[in-house]
Amino acid sequence: MDLRIFTEPQQGADYDTLLAVAKASEDLGFDAFFRSDHYLSMGPVDGLPGPTDAWITLAGLARETRTIRLGTLMTAGTFRLPGVLAIQVAQVDQMSGGRIELGLGAGWFEEEHRAYGIPFPKERIARLEEQLAIVTGLWSTGEGERFSYEGTHYQLTDSPALPKPVQPRIPVLIGGHGAVRTPRLAARYADEFNLPFASLEDTERQFGRVRDAAREAGRDPGDIVYSNALVVCVGKDEAEVARRAAAIGRGADELRADGLAGSPAEVVDKIGRYAEKGASRIYLQVLDLDDLDHLELISSQVQSQLS
């Protein structure tokens, strides 16, 4: 079971904080450091000092880390044109020496679009499908060849399809709870399917839909990595669990029900139940980014039991 650290910096984190978490994640042996792609905080927080851009952040981290993989859950398709996104991600992959992964979603948080003057179009899933075709098409076009695309929402003509990433294929993550279109897109484009904040029952159901869609598309369902994203809150004792839950404005019982919370043994047991549903990777949503002791505890007493 791979454990990855997943952060939500729109809730309040600057680059230096993210760098500290990424370096700690690398030093502690976590598989990857991922971040969200949002420009507005959610819930009763002010988000100070303000938003950071996902791909500018990852470009910086690419030069200041050495081994840990880096990526997004999920880049909002509404924020960037697909041709520009392909260039950005390929460049950051070069900067990292081939450690980048792209989670790409349709974009959903309308309020942040209004706040920063970003168009929030209808038919975002249809746009996402074209974006996936363009980004992966640009990367897979041979050097010296040209790429063109004629879609409803995007048109590319005679593109040199440069730059190329270091990796032969940058892993593409697709995720979500949609019952029909999301599994179909995952079957066609995803190296990994991620289901965020889902129960065991919903995980089993959605993973099954993706597997069925892969078979219908003529693809081996085993070629796709299946993962969950879940909030994490681990403590050596009940008082520490309660303290960490209170620090993120949540209750310990709520987190036990909806995420990965409790003692290391409790969390290991619950991760095992997600593994039984087909997950081979968990993104640990860490919300208190100043609590690096939390990462150390997870590494030493949870991750150590899963390797």
Results as ranks from 00 to 15, higher is better:
Glu216Asn: 09
Glu296Ala: 15
Leu40Ala: 15
Gly262Leu: 00
Pro183Trp: 05
Lys236Arg: 15
Ala239Phe: 00
Ile282Lys: 00
Lys277Ile: 01
Asp191Thr: 12
Gly107Phe: 03
Asn194Met: 04
Ser307Ala: 11
Ser280Leu: 04
Phe79Arg: 04
Ser299Trp: 11
Arg209Ser: 12
Val166Ala: 13
Ala217Phe: 07
Arg80Ser: 09
Gln88Tyr: 06
Val89Gln: 07
Asp37Arg: 05
Val21Tyr: 03
His294Trp: 08
Gln10Met: 14
Val268Ser: 12
Glu204Leu: 03
Leu230Asn: 02
Arg256Val: 06
Pro165Lys: 07
Val231Ser: 09
Arg188Ile: 08
Gly178Leu: 06
Gly60Ala: 04
Leu128Gly: 03
Ile282Ser: 11
Leu19Glu: 06
Thr78His: 04
Ile56Pro: 02
Asn194Arg: 08
Ala265His: 08
Gly103Pro: 05
Asp258Arg: 15
Asp37Gly: 03
Thr7Cys: 12
Arg273Tyr: 07
Glu204Ile: 00
Gln285Gly: 13
Gln11Asn: 13
Ile248Asp: 07
Arg211Cys: 09
Val234Ala: 10
Arg273Met: 10
Leu138Cys: 09
Asp31Asn: 09
Gly50Val: 05
Ile68His: 03
Ala54Lys: 02
Leu156Ala: 09
Gly60Arg: 08
Glu216Asp: 12
His153Glu: 09
Trp139Gly: 01
Val172Cys: 08
Thr57Cys: 08
Gly47Asn: 09
Arg63Met: 11
Val166Leu: 13
Leu132Ala: 11
Thr141Ala: 10
Arg146Cys: 09
Val172Lys: 06
Phe193Asp: 01
Asp37Ile: 05
Gly29Ile: 00
Pro264Leu: 05
Arg211Ala: 14
Glu8Thr: 11
Leu102Thr: 04
Asp212Ala: 15
Asp2Lys: 09
Lys236Gln: 14
Ala245Trp: 01
Leu287Arg: 08
Asp2Leu: 00
Tyr149Phe: 14
Thr75Gln: 07
Pro165Trp: 01
Glu123Leu: 12
Ile134Gln: 06
Ala261His: 04
Glu129Ser: 12
Gly208Gln: 08
Asp202Trp: 00
Ala161Met: 02
Leu128Ser: 00
Gly262Pro: 00
Gln94Thr: 02
Gly60Met: 01
Asp293Ala: 15
Val267Tyr: 00
Arg4Trp: 01
Thr75Met: 03
Val84Lys: 06
Glu26Trp: 02
Ala213Gly: 12
Glu123His: 15
Thr203Val: 10
Gly151Ile: 02
Gly29Phe: 00
Arg256Gly: 01
Leu287Pro: 02
Gln131Ile: 04
Ala247Ile: 13
Arg127Lys: 13
Val234Lys: 04
Gly235Asp: 05
Arg256Trp: 06
Lys236Asn: 13
Gln94Met: 10
His38Asp: 05
Ile87Arg: 14
Ala217Gly: 12
Asp288Met: 03
Leu104Ala: 04
Pro82Cys: 07
Glu8Val: 10
Arg4His: 06
Gln94Cys: 08
Ser263Tyr: 01
Phe120Gln: 11
